[in-house]
C-alpha cells in the first residue's frame, strides 16, 4: 500500500481520538482517546520513515512512545487522586476551576 493510505488511516484515527476527548465524560476514557491520538501520530511518523526512506522517524516514534508512557502514568495518578478526593471521575463534575 502507498503512503497516502497510511496517512489517511492515521488522520482517521486522530479524528476518532479528538471526538473521544470531546465526547466522553469519564476521565480514564478521555486519557485513552489521547493515547489513540498519539498512536495515530506514530503511524504517520513510521509511514514517512518507510517511504522516504530514513530511519529518523522510527527513533522519534520510540521517543514518543516513552513520553506517552510517562504521560499515562502521571495522568492516571492524578485520576486516582481526583477520584479519591472528589469521589467522581466525570469531567462534567470537576468544575473547581470554572470562573
Amino acid at each position: 500500500m502507498g503512503l497516502p493510505a497510511y496517512l489517511i488511516l492515521s488522520g482517521v484515527l486522530f479524528g476518532i481520538g479528538v471526538a473521544g476527548v470531546l465526547l466522553r465524560r469519564n476521565v480514564v476514557v478521555v486519557l485513552m482517546s489521547v493515547e489513540l491520538m498519539l498512536n495515530a501520530a506514530n503511524l504517520a511518523l513510521i509511514a514517512f520513515s518507510r517511504f522516504l526512506p530514513t530511519h529518523d522517524g522510527q527513533v522519534i516514534t520510540f521517543l514518543v512512545i516513552a513520553v506517552a508512557a510517562a504521560e499515562a502514568a502521571v495522568g492516571l495518578a492524578l485520576v486516582v487522586q481526583i477520584a479519591r478526593s472528589r469521589g467522581t471521575v466525570d469531567v462534567d463534575d470537576l468544575t473547581l476551576l470554572r470562573g
Binding site: 502507498g2 503512503l3 496517512l7 492515521s10 479524528g15 476518532i16 479528538v18 470531546l22 517511504f51
Partner: peptide
C-alpha cells in the same frame, strides 16, 4: 469536530507529502 479534524489532517498531510515517493 473529530471528522473535520481527521479529514483536514489526512488531507493536508497527503497533499503536502508531495516530495515523498508515495
Amino acid at each position: 469536530v473529530g471528522a473535520l479534524m481527521g479529514i483536514m489532517l489526512a488531507g493536508v498531510v497527503v497533499i503536502r507529502a508531495g516530495g515523498v515517493p508515495g
